[in-house]
Structure formats: C-alpha cells, structure tokens
Write a protein that binds this DNA or RNA. Structure first.
Lengths: 228, 228
DNA sequence: CGTTACCTTGAGCCTTCTCAAAAGTTGTGG
DNA sequence: CCACAACTTTTGAGAAGGCTCAAGGTAACG
C-alpha cells in the first residue's frame, strides 16, 4: 500500500540542498534548488515496495524505517534500520532492490528523484555526495555480511546494540523503536533467540532492560569486544 | 603480503577509459587518459588488505578474485567473487573495507585511484559510471544478505550455482576456480556442508560433477526456483 | 610413484529453531 | 480507575539443521 505523497502547493522550498547532505559530510553552499515534501507514515506502512520504480529519495525526520526483502514463503531479511537524519531509497537503478516500511509512526521527507538526478548532472560536489551515500550503504552491507554469515547469536546481538548505541551518540542509553521480530529479521535469527539473548546479556551484567525496549548498556567494552 | 605493482615505463596507454566501463554499461567515447598496468598474482596472494589505503582500482583479466573479511579467531566471510572482466577495489573511503586475494593465479589490471578520481572530477559520465559500479556492488551485497540471513544450505548452494552460471553466460557448464572452503565462506557454511550439498544436488539430478570443480547444470529451472 | 592438498562421507553433538504457554504491556470502554 | 482484549515479550521443552571431529578417497604434482 504505497501512499502517494501530497505535494506542497507553496513555491517556497521546504528543505534545501544542505539538508540533503549526509550528516557526516561537509555541508554544501550550493543552491537550494532541491525541495522536499514532508509526509507521515503510520507503523508498518509501506513507503515503497521491492521492484517499485524509484520516484523519490527519502530522509527520516522522526520515527524509524526498515528496508527489507521478503521471500514468497514469508521469510524476511531486513537490510538496515534508518533513524532520524538518515537517508534511504537512493538507488541508481530504475527500481528499488529492497522495500521500505515505517518501523514506528514516522515523519519522512521526500525528494523527487528527477530533481536530484538533474542536480547531480550539474553539480559535481552533489554527485560525489550521493556516490558517497551509496558507498556508505555498501560498507554497512558488507559489515552485515560478516555478521550474518559468521557470528553467533550473542555476537550478533552485541553488535546490534553497539550499532544502535552509536546512532544514539554513544550515550549507552536508548529506546528501541523496533520489535523483537524486526531485530530478529535484521540479525538472521528468530525472535525467541533474540529475546533469550537479551536475557543472557542481562544475566552477564552487560545491559539492563527497563521494559522490553528501553535499553541501558552497562558494559560497553564487553559488548564491543563480543560484537566486533 | 602486498606486492607493489610494476609501473609501465611507456607513455602509451595500455588500457583506455573504455576498458574501465563495466561490461553492462554503455561504452564511453571519452579520452583514454586513464592508463592501467597489468600484474600477475599467484593463488592465495593478497592483492590488498582490509584497512589498507586505497591506491588502485582493479580489473580481473584472467583467473578469479575474492574479497573477504576475517575475524581474529579465523572465521572468514567472503563478500564476492570477481571473474574476468569485473572490477573490484573501487571505494570512496581512504581505506578498503574488505581484503582481496587471488582465488587462482590471476592477471589483474591496476588503475591509479588518483587518476580515476581526477577523471571523475572532470567527466560527469565517468563519475556516474563509477557510482553505478558502487550501486551494483551494493545490490549484490543486499541480495547476499537475504541468502546469508534466511536461506537453507541447499538454497544457498543453488543460488551460488545459478550466479556462477550467469557469469559464465548461462550455458549451464563451467569450471569453479575456487575451493570448497571458499564456497563455504561465501555462503556462510562449512566446507563439509557444501560438499554434502553438491552430493545431494547430484542425487536430485540437478547437476553433474566431473571432478570436484567442473560443473554441468542438469536442471536449471529447479536450481533457480530453489535458490531464489 | 609417493607426497600433499583437496574433497567426500560418516557419526555424534550443539546451537538455534519450532511449538507452546505464561507473563507483561498497551489501549479502550465502561 | 478498573476490566478486558489484543499484542508483544519471555520462558520452556523438544526437534533439527548444520557443525565438529574423524577417516577414507581422489586428484594434482614433483
């Protein structure tokens, strides 16, 4: 159920090119010719489907997004979670290779792919910035291959917690926006194994859970060593 | 053991930009300003290491290459195999994220990263072509995530055979350049499970083995359905 | 023709999965 | 504010797919 975004009727750009730059990259001084449109998605709503045409490029404002592939019999692999500030859906091909859904109620900015492409044609720095984004996604995927192919359940969980902590500023305290099933499908496990893993890590004093989704890391060195 | 490539002393370009284009992409008409140098690697020789600086971009002429990550205790995950005609080692970051080794004795072309980067700065089409290459690698990695996270041993093997067949022109007949251990580390299995899988597929009349590495596919529809 | 590396097969084990049920959490309406 | 329903998470018990360890077979090479 792809929902067509509502275009703004205003001529004022809502978001300029600087917002399109990844957070880690130096900001641009180029023209605010690329405008975005805000849109809200409810939990589990599809943002785009696998093999669907690439019309937009997306930025998470609030909430969280997952990209995934699903097999005919229902087995699912989540490629990555996207948290506020992160971009997704940028692909060079005509069609998306993964689908994207909202993990929780989310506010997303949509940029027209045509505009982005046109800008990349004219602006060398912008083109490089987008290449950089693709390269960053590739690096994440490559790291995840090692996790899925060779790490144990507890190692995967540790790596996941460290990753989540990092994207929350390494403060050792964060709220998980996704369910145990989402985590399981990200880590190539079952939700029961994920749950058992959390219990195990609590027993090892590596973390505390306040409710199922509020995490406090108690031994980040241990988790880091285990997940790496 | 990284071996420094021998630079050509000739001013004649050995390879021009057209050779740098991925096979699937339209060829370029731009200047042959990028020159490459041929180099031979013996089986299992390291081409570059993980975290090593990105000095070159590589094209397989003959033989085969694997890129991989290794954990401290020796567990290894192979990211991808590269066969003749394919490029690898193209990264935007300062350092490689995976290491690369020759699977068999191989002839490789090396292109200076600096030259490639400079060209991308000047030539929009070339820049796009390189972005496309990164995007293609990302797509492959994403497909592989589903394989590693969710597929059974036999499904992984079937997918691998179909992939190998495709890169040999879908003729249903090819020579595997890599060992059972390499295949296992690519598919997130042990070499014994890979071997058992081959035997099982032979029993199912899906393929024939003439020696351990010469493969004849007998039922590609079956393998395709199983691997997808 | 012997040596070495690689591949296959077997037996038993272990991590993770499956199935099931209980416990906890959230939201809603009386 | 409480009761109830729906959903999520945790925990338990047993099953199974793939792993480990081990032995034997095959092919390449000096």
């Amino acid at each position: 159920m792809f929902v067509q975004p509502i275009e703004t009727t205003s001529n004022q750009p809502i978001v300029d090119w600087r917002d399109f730059a990844p957070c880690a990259a130096p900001l641009f001084a180029c023209a605010p010719e690329v405008v975005g449109t805000s849109f809200n998605y409810v939990r589990d709503e599809e943002i785009y489907g696998e093999r669907e045409d690439t019309q937009f490029i997306y930025k998470v404002i609030s909430g969280a997004v997952r990209t995934s592939k699903i097999m005919r019999d229902g087995r699912r692999q989540i490629g990555r979670f996207y948290l506020p500030g992160e971009f997704f859906g940028l692909e060079l091909g005509k069609q998306h290779n993964l689908s994207a859904e909202a993990v929780a109620d989310s506010k997303i900015f949509l940029f027209k792919r045509r505009q982005i492409e046109a800008m990349a044609q004219r602006n060398m720095e912008a083109a490089r910035e987008m290449w950089l984004m693709t390269a960053d996604h590739l690096r994440h995927a490559e790291d995840h291959l090692l996790l899925l192919g060779r790490k144990t359940a507890l190692e995967r969980l540790a790596a996941f917690l460290i990753e989540m902590d990092m994207s929350h500023g390494n403060c050792g305290l964060f709220e998980l926006p996704m369910s145990r099933r989402d985590i399981a499908d990200y880590l190539g496990l079952t939700l029961e194994t994920v749950s058992r893993g959390f219990s195990e890590l609590q027993k090892k004093q590596a973390l505390e859970l306040d409710g199922a989704r509020h995490v406090v890391l108690r031994n980040r060195a241990f988790l880091g060593a285990m997940g790496a």
